[in-house]
Amino acid sequence: MNRERAFDQVLRHWLDDGADQAPERYVWAAIEDVERTAQRGVWQASLKGTLMKVTPAMTVLSAAAVVLLAIVAYQVLGSSRFAPPAEPSSTPRLIVVADLSRILPPTEVDLNTGSPLPAVTGLQALGVLLPEGTDGFPQTGFIDARMTAHSGEGGYQTSSALFDTAADAQRGFDFLTTTLDVKSTHGWSLERTGEVPGLGDESLSYSGSAPFAGLRNVGVYLWRVNNVLLAVFQFNYTGNALHTLALEMDARAH
């Protein structure tokens, strides 16, 4: 028992000896990120709060009222008056795995051998956006992804990732943007350059460098079209095809 206590004591002393003050630069960096980040789920929380105030009796009464209205409407107007809609539904179509490669630009050819570069699939295809690994990536609803490989020391890489639902893709978008926002000595050193008008349902663009891979002139476009995430990554390259490539991919995703 004494040995046990002595070991506990050693542990306490050892743990006491360490940094106790957070360097302010990390706190300010986080606060800068906060300035650009919306809180999540405020409307869900308020909707939930509203729903919780609805009593079972109110729910039953509301349902009964809806049924009654439907019966009255049917009897008054007659079923024949309900004409089919003139236009097809405007609901966007759901993208499937077969679309992923089609959305991306053609796979590049290895400059040395002349043969097409191998396709990258699965979570690995998001690897370029997750320099520190894909372990933390929320895989709920993740189906598959594709990435075009690159053949030179600079250029573009493009990715498309398919999710079960638009909400799953939204979670992936949030995760990736949170990762891209973090500046670190072994990760990104990017600045948000804002949304890209006309690109997908939500979009963000970045520019800066990637210390983890020693890359300069990095530009990133990340956007979501319904249940698919799309990205263009530019590095060691000063061309201006980033925007054009993104618009072409976006058009193919619609």
Binding site: Y26, I31, V34, T178
Partner: peptide, 18 residues
């Protein structure tokens, strides 16, 4: 630890309404 702190503060802000 600094990177973890930065990510934590951002996630706290983002998810605080929950």
């Amino acid at each position: 630890a600094g990177d973890a702190l930065q990510v934590t503060l951002l996630r706290i802000w983002r998810d605080l309404p929950s």
